[in-house]
Design a protein around this nucleic acid. Structure first.
Lengths: 209, 209
DNA sequence: TAGATTGTTAATCGATTAACAATC
DNA sequence: TAGATTGTTAATCGATTAACAATC
């Protein structure tokens, strides 16, 4: 248990969490690695291995308590905490993130949106004020922020990222199609949407033959 | 060369394509596996292996022609073709996809948006008409569509997906946080945004220690 | 107790890295 | 030619699967 967790396992964790929440909502109390595997299209063996990275949550002859396992994985992911976010860029993506209510519903709260466009500054998106990006440093000095959502035009991305890191941001959810150069203590998750379309295109082509 | 291409390689292809386009834009004509590896943070060995899944595009003692390799990988991805898309759901995500100009700029054209909300039907997003989802079947009968972008509320997702598949859609770009049950000839790429935030949260927590 | 199912070790499989002959 | 760098085979590493004793 515990110790090193491989990237492969980390990428599967949110899937476990989602399926366990669904099962809980369906009123399922208990599930075996076999049953969960069928549902998630993973082998029972892999599920037991994955879960045992974090400790023995199961009982022999019984399986796993859905609620208990869901709670544990939630804690492991850290979604039992509130995360305070700022959004950089009030364009299509920034708006979509700001307007979603699934993120705040899961504890990911957006405090502010920053943009350079005078036409946007001072407006609100949902109930969130769009601020002048020039005031970013001041804002970060006063407010504790956990995550920055980067959704600015590509040419500005690196500069804004540098600014964020200089002001204590260590986690970036990056929607810009670029590989940011970041200090080693910074955590980044890239969402490169166009790559998804390209992979879809590739797989469609592959199926032709 | 050719033959089976592993998922691991497929996932890296869009990265190659993007970096090669950047290099081309920077005016770089030639690059070695070594040089490309440094840029993409991959080993030179891996780059040569990956590229050789598709054929010998390099020259010993020289490296790869940036333009030639970019063109080849573009063809391999299928982004030299136009892809016709429809968007299901005119909410935050559907809007963001419809309003982006990077997708049409890369040949991914949105023909129509479908929604069930009478308040949205008949309006336009960007220059794209929002249609009644009841008219989806008729539309698909008349228009060739390559890709469906699924961005409806989770409870409707499976039903809409079934409808799409019944009407000849074989590629789905799925933004709904659910594992869709789809016929085996259907290709799906999932974009589970909330999973990215959860992974970010996990990694932040991990760094604490 | 008997049956089921975990936790964990061992075996297999696949992906990455290293090495090097071929060749530009 | 000499130097550089590919294409490709072999070695290593890591992740997945299988097996099974432990135990609820």
């Amino acid at each position: 248990m515990a110790g090193y967790v491989s990237e492969a396992v980390i990428r599967r964790l949110p899937g476990y969490y989602r399926h366990l929440r669904e099962l809980e909502a369906e009123g399922v109390r208990q599930i075996s690695s076999q049953g969960l595997g069928e549902r998630m299209k993973l082998t029972a063996s892999q599920i037991r291995q994955d879960i045992n990275c974090f400790g023995g949550f199961g009982r022999q002859g019984y399986g796993y308590s859905v609620q208990e396992l869901r709670e544990h994985i939630g804690m492991i992911l850290g979604v039992d905490r509130v995360h305070r976010m700022v959004i950089l860029g009030g364009g299509n993506i920034g708006r979509a993130v700001a307007l979603s209510d699934s993120f705040p519903a899961n504890g990911f709260q957006t405090l502010a949106i920053f943009d350079a466009d005078p036409g946007k500054i001072g407006t609100t998106i949902g109930s969130i004020l769009v601020r002048d990006i020039e005031t970013l440093t001041d804002f970060l000095r006063e407010q504790p922020v956990d995550i920055a959502v980067l959704a600015v035009p590509p040419p500005q991305a690196q500069e804004v990222a540098d600014d964020l890191c200089r002001n204590g941001i260590t986690a970036i959810w990056n929607f810009v199609p670029a590989d940011l150069k970041l200090p080693p203590n910074t955590t980044v998750v890239n969402v490169h949407l166009e790559e998804g379309l390209e992979i879809l295109s590739f797989k469609m082509k592959q199926k032709e033959t």
